[in-house]
């Protein structure tokens, strides 16, 4: 009886190999086709544009111009500013998002009454768009009637209002603050999920060996969640680098281009100048930097430890 059933089922599954192949092809087709045509084709087209004179207002004069777009952007002080700003933007945003996110995750790891509700209230920036977060902070940072200036004045920490968004000395700091505020939730959520998966036996064994809280943190907890830490910081750095939305909403690159990062400058070239060639050249520089960063990161951290996510 048993043998008969397994014989039958084996035949049925084997006979379906051909139809299986058809099923695979048909199920994947829409996804692969759409992504190929509307993501990879324009992406490739965009890379070609980096070597073309391609401006929206001069479409009759599209031609290959070699590396002229690159010469153009490298002699533009705004581009060089954006290059340094990108470094600050990624590095400082990432460090603060990660450290605060980890601290919050550790504090939320042990169950307490109201924890779910607490998470519901503090993790909502996930659901907002970068553009709106930019607008919200634009209002908070307002130099005339902004609430941050008001609180600082009332508490006597400053005597004069600060032009958080208009003063070139402060503007980059301000956009990074908004970005940190936005990104803490990502790390807190991801790291909390990782912390919850640490087997409690490990801690029990640690206690028996007489390890205290700090030693348990460094010898048990952090090594255990290391794969998540490496994956999330790698991905997050790339996303922060690529995403211009907060800057677009908050300063739109101002004052005088002082808060542009590479991605917001690229967007600016597309939306305001219609200079697709220059934008693509900036994009290619970004791809180069991303490649270098990823290779460096994977070498230093030894890719083997990365989670497959």
């Amino acid at each position: 009886m048993n043998g008969r059933l397994s014989f039958l089922s084996r035949r049925r599954l084997a006979g379906s190999r051909n139809s299986s192949r058809k099923f695979i092809a048909l199920s994947l087709l829409p996804a692969v086709l759409l992504v190929a045509v509307f993501t990879y084709y324009p992406f490739g087209r965009g890379i070609v544009m980096a070597f073309q004179n391609y401006t929206l207002f001069d479409l009759t004069n599209v031609r290959f111009i070699g590396f002229d777009n690159f010469k153009g952007i490298f002699s533009d002080p705004k581009f060089l500013d954006a290059l340094t700003n990108s470094a600050y933007w990624v590095f400082l945003s990432l460090i603060f998002q990660f450290v605060i996110g980890l601290a919050i995750a550790l504090m939320l790891n042990k169950r307490f009454r109201g924890r779910g509700l607490f998470q519901g209230f503090v993790f909502y920036p996930w659901a907002l768009s970068g553009f709106l977060i930019g607008l919200i902070w634009k209002w908070l940072f307002n130099s005339q009637i902004g609430v941050i200036n008001d609180l600082l004045l009332r508490t006597g920490l400053i005597d004069e209002r600060i032009g958080f968004l208009s003063d070139p000395q402060w503007a980059m700091f301000s956009v990074i603050v908004a970005n940190v505020w936005y990104g803490i939730a990502f790390f807190a959520i991801m790291l909390l999920a990782a912390l919850q998966s640490v087997p409690s036996e490990l801690y029990e064994a640690g206690s028996m060996d007489g390890a205290g809280g700090i030693r348990k943190l460094f010898n048990i907890t952090l090594p255990y969640i290391m794969p998540t830490v490496l994956t999330t910081t790698l991905l997050r750095a790339i996303w922060i680098f690529n995403d211009p939305a907060i800057i677009y909403g908050l300063t739109n690159g101002g004052p005088a281009g002082k808060t542009h990062i590479l991605s917001s400058l690229m967007l600016d070239r597309i939306m305001y100048g219609g200079d697709y060639g220059a934008a693509s050249a900036i994009g290619l520089v970004m791809i180069g930097l991303l490649l270098l960063y990823t290779i460096f990161y994977l070498t230093v951290t030894k890719a083997g430890k990365l989670g497959d996510f």
């Binding site: 993501t39 084709y41 324009p42 992406f43 087209r45 965009g46 890379i47 544009m49 391609y54 929206l56 991905l235 790339i238 680098f241 690529n242 211009p244 991605s263 690229m266 967007l267 597309i270 697709y276 934008a279 693509s280 994009g283 290619l284 970004m286 791809i287 991303l290 990823t294």
Partner: peptide, 10 residues
């Protein structure tokens, strides 16, 4: 991972 805005113009 790629800077998607390269495709915006095309």
């Amino acid at each position: 991972m790629l800077p998607g805005f390269i495709s915006l113009g095309p």
